[in-house]
Simulated assay, not measured.
Amino acid sequence: MPACVAHGAGDLRVEELPAPLPGPGQALVAVRYGGVCGSDLHYWRHGGVGDFRLREPMVLGHEVVGTVVSYGRGATGPAPGTAVAVHPATPCGRCPECADGRANVCRDTRYLGSASRFPHVQGGFAGQVVVPAGQVRPLPEGLGLRRAALAEPLAVALHSVRRAGDVAGRHVLVTGAGPIGCLVVAAARAAGAGRVTVTDLLPEALGYAAVAGADTLVRADGPADAGWPAEVDVAVEASGAAAGLDTCLRLVRRGGVVVQLGMLPPGRSPFPGNLVVSREIELRGAFRFDSEFEEALALLAARGEFDGLISAVVPVREAEGAFALAADRGRACKVLLEFGGG
């Protein structure tokens, strides 16, 4: 079966790997679509994401959907042939974080296509993938596989908005209009935000934010009178740039909440810490998601505008071109790889 494998910085290969067999408690899924995520791009370009570095070849991908093929001994779930999305996380279920209901920050989790542990957890950009049976979710009625490929990043966005607290009727700022930032816009809208302002350097990216439901679009390098709000109630930093965090902290009101969602570059990142103190700003991290996955599937089934965020569907054999397109934010928002499954 074809698989998209990162060997190091700038070294992405489509290789033929043996098709897997499901073991006890596992499900075998034929992958149809896989969404190219920012972390996949970092592994391809830089050989790592944040502090997680490639130490061996790794199949990329954690945003995958397809159809159930079969189950291993003792495993049950949706019938073979059922269209499903794959929850990419396998928390340990034993650590203090899991016991506290925060499995998304489990200290011993396994996550598809992640180099956070060694040996790495191989990802889902392959013709077939084996996962614990409990990680497959049947699609709600009316939701096709193509749009369902957004479930994982939308769950990330929903979790970040949940970390912000009640946003109903509030003015929310989102810095960064990449795929995740645009999905944060949609998540904030679904949570009842009164107004959503989005900043980015690229007008094309801001166009996608408008599709997602943003009210105000601001060029991040624009002048002070270019639509910048005087202040906001909540800010979500989705660019992964220190400048974005700086913007969030300077524009959020006193006593407001800033959620850091984007992964900052490794090492130390400067930020205006004195503002956190003098304005009693609450700075919160948001990492992955947990129960929001089911919520994401339901939201995708209910709203068709998400289709406008999918820029291209590219055959896996052309993976390098797909990655290059996904990395060009002037040309694309979310790019999907297409496999033969389903």
Rank of each mutant, 00 (worst) to 15 (best):
V5P: 11
A6M: 06
G10S: 03
L17T: 12
L21R: 15
Q26M: 15
Q26Y: 10
L28D: 10
L28F: 10
V29P: 09
R32W: 00
D40H: 07
L41W: 01
W44A: 14
H46M: 12
G47S: 05
L54S: 09
R55P: 00
E56C: 01
P57Q: 06
L60I: 10
G61F: 01
V65E: 06
T67M: 10
G72C: 03
R73F: 12
R73L: 15
T82H: 03
V84L: 08
T90N: 12
C92Y: 04
C92G: 03
C98P: 10
C98Y: 02
G101W: 00
A103M: 12
A103T: 13
R107E: 14
L112V: 07
A115L: 08
R117C: 12
P119W: 06
H120Y: 04
Q122N: 08
F125G: 02
A126N: 05
P132F: 03
A133G: 08
R137A: 12
L139R: 00
E141T: 13
L145P: 05
L145A: 11
L145N: 02
R147T: 14
A148F: 04
L150I: 07
A155M: 10
V156S: 12
V161D: 07
R162A: 15
R163N: 11
A164I: 07
G165F: 05
G165M: 07
A168F: 13
A168R: 15
H171N: 01
A177H: 02
A177K: 00
G181W: 01
A186G: 04
A186K: 02
A187V: 08
A187N: 08
A190S: 15
G194W: 03
T199N: 07
T199E: 03
L202S: 14
E204H: 15
Y208V: 07
T216Q: 15
V218P: 11
G227C: 10
W228P: 05
P229I: 09
E231V: 02
E231K: 12
V232L: 12
A235W: 04
A235C: 09
V236S: 05
E237W: 02
E237Y: 04
A243D: 14
L245Q: 03
D246Q: 13
L249P: 10
L249H: 02
V252N: 08
V257P: 07
V258M: 10
L261P: 01
G262M: 06
G262R: 06
P265I: 09
G267Q: 10
R268H: 14
S269W: 00
F271T: 13
P272H: 06
L275E: 12
V276S: 13
E280I: 00
R288H: 15
F289C: 09
D290G: 15
E292T: 09
F293M: 10
F293Q: 09
E294F: 00
A296W: 05
D307Q: 01
I310V: 14
V314K: 04
V314H: 01
V314E: 11
V316E: 13
V316I: 11
V316N: 00
A322I: 07
L325C: 12
A327N: 14
R329L: 14
A332S: 14
K334Q: 04
V335L: 11
G341R: 04
G342L: 05
G342N: 02
